Computed example of a mutant assay.
Amino acid sequence: MPKTITEQHERKIAQMVRNWPVEHALDWNAVCIGAQVILAWETPPTRQALDKKIVIKVAYKNKKEQLKLEKQNLSGMPRPRSTLDAMKKITRLQMENDALKAELTKMAEVANRLIYNATISGLTRERLMAPLPTIHEPQVTLENSRR
């Protein structure tokens, strides 16, 4: 009886590829070995067998592209000169992050107060959440500019 890869297997293998850890290289050989565990086969499936499955192929291509972009982004980042510089930068960024979180909390409190007061004044939630009106600038024509 030939071995088959079911749709459920395809989804599980594609999910494995999507969750592939960054610290491990992604290649078809590694995917085949990982798929062997999911399929519970004695031998790993071939690269060609997995490549024929569209779901797996798309997940592999997308993850490969994502890893490539992450690598490019990391290579463009400036490196700290020393561990002390890195620690100072981390501390500064953590303080900035904490300040922004506190500011966001205050803004949320103000928004809640405004929504509450508007609601008890008779405005509905739909009215409060209505989009802002668009302002149409009058078009200047040659005739209008002579007046």
Rank of each mutant, 00 (worst) to 15 (best):
Q36F: 04
E10N: 09
Q48C: 10
L26F: 04
N73T: 10
W41A: 02
A111M: 07
S75Q: 11
T46I: 01
K63E: 08
T43M: 13
K57Q: 06
M77S: 05
D85C: 03
L114D: 10
M107R: 11
I54C: 02
K68T: 09
K57Y: 03
V140C: 09
E96Q: 00
H24P: 02
A14N: 02
I5A: 04
P133W: 07
A14P: 08
A59S: 05
S145N: 12
G34R: 00
V17L: 01
V22E: 14
A25F: 13
T4Y: 04
R79V: 10
N62K: 12
P131H: 01
R11Q: 11
K53P: 05
Q72H: 08
L74M: 05
T141S: 03
N73S: 12
I90P: 00
K101H: 13
M107D: 08
A99W: 08
T4I: 06
K53W: 00
K88T: 06
T119I: 06
I38V: 12
K106V: 08
K53S: 05
A86W: 05
I38A: 08
G34A: 00
K3D: 00
A86D: 00
P133D: 05
I33E: 15
M77G: 01
H136Y: 13
G76M: 11
K61R: 13
H136E: 14
N19H: 09
L128S: 06
L132V: 13
K12E: 00
D51R: 15
A111S: 01
P131Y: 07
G76E: 10
T141D: 01
T141E: 01
M95E: 15
Y116A: 02
K61Y: 00
T6M: 02
A111F: 14
P2G: 07
Q48W: 11
E143H: 08
E7Y: 07
I13E: 05
T124L: 02
N62I: 07
A40V: 02
K71W: 03
E23R: 15
T134L: 10
R47C: 08
K89H: 13
T105W: 09
T4E: 06
K89Q: 14
K71R: 15
I120Y: 06
P44S: 13
W20K: 03
R147A: 08
P21E: 06
R125I: 15
W20F: 10
A49H: 04
T124N: 01
I54D: 12
Q15Y: 06
M1A: 10
D51H: 15
K88C: 05
N19W: 03
E109L: 03
H136C: 04
W20Q: 04
V22K: 11
M95C: 12
Q66G: 10
T134Q: 10
W20L: 00
L39S: 00
V31M: 03
A40N: 11
K3F: 08
V58F: 11
E96V: 01
H9L: 07
I135D: 08
K3R: 14
R81N: 06
R125H: 11
E70H: 12
L84P: 00
E10P: 06
Q66T: 13
Q72E: 15
E103R: 15
N73V: 11
W41S: 09
N97Q: 12
G122M: 03
A111E: 03
S82C: 05
K88Y: 02
I115H: 02
E23A: 14
A102Q: 07
N117G: 04
